[in-house]
Design a protein around this nucleic acid. Structure first.
Lengths: 187, 187
DNA sequence: AACTTAACCGGAGTCGGCTCCGGTTGGCAA
DNA sequence: TTGCCAACCGGAGCCGACTCCGGTTAAGTT
């Protein structure tokens, strides 16, 4: 139905795209997700217009930079289920998620965009949802987690925790809130 | 201990302060909490510098504008406890909080600032915490809520829900998350 | 090789946030 | 009344976000 024209990028455009991602990754690591986009564009040797054409918002750029790392976290979910009791696996996964988000200083706004966006190009949200679905299903199968829950709700709950407790000294708070959340989904 | 010098404002400063608040209230209602501060300053007949001296960040201005309304919400907590079972009272209060936040479009950033800020001038956070403490205590007394919970945690949890689900079509999501949260604090 | 054009490029320009500091003044003391 | 100064005022100026469009070019066509 929708126009999924993916016509490969022109060679020069492809290079610019990759250079932007590489430079942005360095910049975000160095100065947090609030780094100046103009500077990133300059360092990548392109105009600011080119950056914005490729990444309409700061959040799309952040998402692109960290897409791989988030994907790795998500694909790790089945292994967790295999080696731990469901509730432990869920808690461990959520803890990793929180630590990941905290490590990328200032990433909260990007997360909000990814989670709230209607835009399905934000493929990352689907991955996260699926990871949580896996963890939930294991718990339901073991009869320790309330059935009928929408993994999307849980993802949003976790997102909320991350948004409110992303600061440096708030890891403990975040973990307490995760406990509350997990308690809420238990049977 | 701390320098609580509250020396009354000079007469002209006082007037400017009040005019800023009044104009900001109108502007926020009209265009959401993202309204141009420069415009607000102009409409209030002061320079942008004056606005910033009084309200160092956009969030402090938003907080000041809505302080009274939040306070009203908080003082309503005891009445809720008196007329409903504790868990219902808690749910009702949280629902009102969410509706209030949703009504003020774009208020989420201000909320985050109020909740996370170290700054105790953000008196509002204390009010919210106390309201939740009242609601929690009632539940603990009735033996339906887990004792030993820090109301601050619950406030942050609610704040997280508000941040992630502040959008227009997300009231249902927010309420489901509140249910999850309440479930987590139940015995 | 020459031509065509869709796709791409880049930066000038506009806008809002925020700072900084030289000029102004309310209110008190003498 | 007069003088003084702490407090206050305001906007010029800087910075970054984001838009817009005239010029450029890769890559397919003949």
């Amino acid at each position: 139905m929708s126009s999924q024209q993916v016509r490969p990028l022109r060679a020069d455009a492809q290079q610019n795209y990759e250079r932007l991602l590489a430079v942005a990754a360095r910049a975000f690591t160095r100065e947090g997700a609030g780094a100046s986009l103009k500077t990133i564009a300059q360092e990548a040797g392109v105009g600011i217009g080119t950056l914005y054409r490729r990444f309409p918002t700061r959040e799309t750029l952040v998402e692109a930079v960290y897409r791989n790392e988030v994907a790795r976290l998500c694909t790790a979910a089945p292994a967790l289920v295999a080696e731990s009791p469901p509730v432990d696996a869920l808690r461990t996964w959520m803890e990793q998620f929180i630590d990941f988000m905290a490590a990328k200083h200032g990433m909260a706004d990007a997360l909000r965009a990814v989670l709230v966006s209607e835009d399905e190009r934000m493929h990352t949200r689907g991955l996260l949802r699926d990871a949580l679905a896996t963890l939930l299903d294991a718990g339901v199968a073991d009869g320790v987690i309330r059935p009928g829950l929408d993994p999307y709700d849980l993802l949003m709950g976790l997102g909320g925790i991350t948004l409110i407790a992303e600061g440096p000294g708030q890891r403990d708070l975040a973990l307490r809130l995760v406990d509350l959340l997990i308690n809420g989904v238990r049977l």
